[in-house]
Every structure is written in C-alpha cells, then in structure tokens.
Amino acid sequence: MTTTSSSFIFSATINGEQREFLADERDSLLEALRERAGIRGPKEGCNNGNCGACAVLLNGVLVNSCCVMAAEVTGEQITTVEGLATPEGLAPLQQCFLEEAALQCGICTPGFLIASTALLAENPHPTEEETRFWLAGNLCRCTGYDKIIRAVLKAADQTA
C-alpha cells in the first residue's frame, strides 16, 4: 500500500484489543476494518446504510460501519461479530442462530447478530413485534426472517 498524504494512523479498541494501523482519510469504518485491519466479519451489502450487513457496536451503540468515517472514531470502542464469542464458547445468540437454522447463506448473519446483541442489551425480553421493528434495518433475502426472529426470542428466553 502506497502511503499518501491522505493516510492517517487509525487507533481504536476493536473487540477489546488496542489496534493501530494506517488508513486513508477517505475510508469508511467498514473499509478500514475490512481492507486495512483484516477484520472481515462486517460485510458490505450496500455501502449506504440500507442493509445492515456491516453493523458494528460503536461504544455499545448499533451503527452501520459503512456510514461512519474511520477518521471519526479514533480512540473509540468497536465490537464486531468476531468479538461476540468468548474463549469459553459461542454467545447465546450465536448458539441460537445455529440451533434455529437462522441463516442460509450467512452473509447477513454478522449484522443480525450485532443488531440483536444491541437489542437484547437494551431490551432483554423483547416481544416478537419489538424484535421485528428493531431488526427492520437488517436485510435478509434467504430466510424470510422467520427463523431469525425465533432465534433472537429464544436467546432472550434463555436470559434471566
């Protein structure tokens, strides 16, 4: 990668780890994560905030990383799908997505998992309707959403 005058040192805590790397000031957070840092769990589906495949948590808040400039988030806390599991195992949401067959192709899954994590953090026991409204910003073309909604509600049921 050629260093140009438009490059800068990106510095943030990603999935609990302090990371510093060279990025371009034109990079979105999504581009910086994927193409500079090698964190490719967040996916590019539309690059304009319509599909939610690139969703990450920025200081715990759900954002579409394609709509955030990388240069804006220096010093912040970022959680991607890679940060959901622990050394002990998968997060309950991840496990429920597997058990409920809540993914077919899997490209939207990282975004749904992040968005669902944000939902359950704010509302640990959502109704089906609340879940459907919260996840309306995430597109899935394979499943018709049925099994995704069931997986999220099941994960919520398992929480005290």
Binding site: K43, T80, V81, E82, L84, F97, G106, P110
Partner: peptide, 13 residues
C-alpha cells in the same frame, strides 16, 4: 454454521 456466526467464513470480497 460456526464459521458463519463468528465472522470466520470467507466470502469472495
């Protein structure tokens, strides 16, 4: 499944 819920599965991009 596990690769696809942990972000490890490698898609073309």
């Amino acid at each position: 499944g596990t690769d696809k819920v942990t972000g490890r599965a490698e898609y073309g991009a």
